[in-house]
Amino acid sequence: MSGRTKILHVVGARPNFMKIAPVMQAVAKAGFAEQKLVHTGQHYDVAMSDVFFTDLGMPVPDLHLAVGSGSHAEQTAKVLVAFERVCLAEQPDLVVVAGDVNSTLACALDCAKLRIPCAHVEAGLRSFDLAMPEEVNRIVTDRLCEILLTPSPDADENLRREGTDPARVFRVGNVMIDTLRAHLPLARATGSPARHGVQPGAYGVLTLHRPSNVDDPAVLAGLLEAVGELQRQLPIVFPAHPRTRRRLEESGLAARAAAMGGLHLCEPLGYLEFLGLVAGAKLVLTDSGGLQEETTALGIPCLTLRENTERPVTVSEGTNTLVGVDPRRIAAEARLALSGQGKAGRVPALWDGHAAERIAEVLRTWRR
Results as ranks from 00 to 15, higher is better:
Glu267Asn: 13
Asn16Asp: 14
Leu56Gly: 01
Cys118Tyr: 01
Leu230Gln: 00
Pro166Trp: 08
Leu269Trp: 05
Val227Leu: 00
Thr286Asn: 00
Lys19Cys: 05
Leu148His: 00
Ala33Leu: 05
Asn137His: 07
Asp154Ile: 14
Ala167Phe: 09
Val323Ala: 09
Ala26Gln: 08
Leu125Ala: 10
Gly191Val: 09
Arg328Ile: 13
Arg358Ile: 04
Glu357Arg: 15
Arg210Cys: 04
Leu65Asp: 02
Ala240Lys: 08
Leu220Ser: 01
Arg85Pro: 05
Ala202Lys: 15
Met260Phe: 11
Leu234Ala: 06
Gln91Phe: 14
Arg247Ala: 05
Gln341Glu: 14
Ala332Cys: 07
Ala21Gly: 10
Cys302Glu: 02
Pro327Thr: 03
Asn137Lys: 02
Val101Arg: 09
Ala112Met: 09
Ala119Tyr: 08
Thr104Asp: 09
Thr207His: 01
Asn308Ile: 14
Asp165Gln: 04
Val86Asp: 06
Gly276Ser: 05
Thr104Ala: 03
Thr207Ser: 01
Ala108Cys: 11
Arg181Leu: 15
Leu8Asn: 07
Thr141Phe: 03
Val175Tyr: 00
Phe53Glu: 05
Ala226Asp: 01
Glu84Gly: 10
Ser152Val: 14
Pro312Leu: 06
Leu80Arg: 03
Glu134Asn: 11
Ala334His: 00
Glu333Asn: 03
Pro22Ile: 10
Pro301Lys: 00
Glu74Thr: 12
Arg171Gln: 10
Val11Leu: 04
Ala258Phe: 12
His241Glu: 12
Val67Ala: 06
Val347Ala: 12
Ile7Lys: 01
Glu310His: 11
Leu180Asp: 04
Cys302Leu: 06
Val86Leu: 04
Asn213Val: 05
Glu225Pro: 09
Leu269Asp: 04
Val219Glu: 03
Val325Arg: 15
Gly262Ile: 01
Glu250Phe: 09
Gly345His: 00
Gly201Trp: 12
Trp351Tyr: 09
Pro235Cys: 07
Gly270Leu: 06
Tyr271Lys: 05
Pro133Met: 06
Glu293Asp: 07
Ala182Met: 12
Ile116His: 03
Leu186Arg: 15
Ile236Pro: 01
Gln75Arg: 11
Val214Ile: 13
Leu208Lys: 02
Met48Ala: 02
Ala73Asp: 09
Val67Ser: 04
Phe170His: 13
Ala221Trp: 02
Arg346Leu: 13
Leu88Gln: 12
Asn16Tyr: 10
Thr304Ile: 08
Phe32Gln: 06
Cys111Asn: 06
Ile300Gln: 00
Glu361Asn: 14
Leu336His: 09
Leu305Tyr: 02
His241Ile: 10
Leu248Ile: 05
Glu317Ile: 14
Val172Met: 07
Trp366Lys: 07
Leu186Gln: 15
Thr296Trp: 05
Pro61Glu: 08
Ala218His: 13
